[in-house]
């Protein structure tokens, strides 16, 4: 059976729910007439605002649920609901605001909400795209097993290089000591690593092919093979880290901004009723 994504959860149960909410809200907005036009303070506006605020709080509750590892229902269901109901929030909140924007805390809350939702869309995209790419990249390996394999190669290469020229030996040693896999935020996210010591070592060994003879040449050949394997392993490890970083990084916007949204929402509600 084909793998079902979170979007398809239980035959699009939450897509249907979200669509129902959106249609109902649009219908209510079209049907409802208020003497001075639509805005957040009409009875419909208050209703939409309440629905929106409850949705926001509920959607944020998901984050807490995930942290607790003790969820009501299964996590896929929660996530599916989170995505679809979060998306429906665009319509609910836009109609609550009645398309009015300004330089104020009310629009700040709206803007934060939109950024949070859009970052969530990116999150959905990564959830749908990267797990398969990760599997493809790692095959039967894990980052741990790749590390072990690299360490084995290092040991072997170091032994082989001992008998070779200082230049080659040094290149191998630098590769062992300075080949960084992952690192800071940017290092984890970037696709290629310039001046990677392993790449440099591979190129050096390749360039000096033919300079040795007999036993020496065979050893060089062996070393070249080792370093080439290491280069590939390092590449896969880096790709794995990159995918994970991409799948993680949006949460560093999504979560803090949704917390900021919560604060703006509180300020918005207090402000509206403080100066009723």
């Amino acid at each position: 059976m084909r793998h079902r994504t979170i979007l398809e959860y239980r035959d699009y149960r939450y897509l249907k729910l979200a669509a129902l909410i959106v249609v109902a809200v649009i219908f209510a907005y079209g049907w409802y007439k208020y003497p001075v036009g639509h805005y957040g303070g009409t009875p419909l506006g208050y209703t939409l605002g309440t629905i929106g605020a409850l949705l926001i709080v509920w959607l944020m509750w998901l984050g807490v649920q995930k942290r607790r590892y003790r969820t009501t229902g299964d996590i896929k269901g929660w996530l599916s609901a989170h995505i679809y109901l979060g998306t429906s929030l665009i319509v609910v909140a836009t109609l609550h605001a009645a398309f009015q924007i300004g330089w104020n805390v009310h629009t700040l809350a709206y803007a934060l909400m939109m950024i949070v939702i859009l970052s969530g869309f990116y999150g959905v995209y990564t959830y749908l795209r990267f797990p398969s790419l990760m599997t493809e990249n790692l095959a039967e390996d894990t980052l741990e097993s790749l590390t072990l394999k690299i360490a084995d190669i290092d040991r072997e290469a170091r032994r082989l290089a001992l008998g070779m020229s200082d230049e080659m030996n040094k290149a191998v040693l630098t590769s062992i000591k300075e080949t960084r896999i992952g690192g800071g935020v940017y290092a984890q996210l970037r696709e290629s690593v310039p001046n990677c010591p392993t790449t440099i070592a591979v190129q050096l060994i390749k360039a000096s092919a033919g300079t040795a003879k007999g036993e020496e040449a065979r050893k060089q050949q062996d070393l070249y093979g080792l370093m080439l394997r290491k280069q590939r392993l390092v590449g896969r490890a880096r790709t794995d880290i990159r995918y994970k970083a991409i799948m993680d990084i949006w949460l560093y916007f999504h979560v803090p901004l949704s917390v900021a949204l919560l604060a703006a929402l509180v300020a918005h509600i207090v402000a509206v009723f403080f100066y009723w």
Binding site: K177, Q188, A245
Partner: peptide, 14 residues
């Protein structure tokens, strides 16, 4: 140790 060395150079996860 080679494994320790490699591990010290791997930094994964945001």
């Amino acid at each position: 140790d080679d494994l320790e060395q490699v591990k010290s150079q791997v930094k994964a996860g945001i």
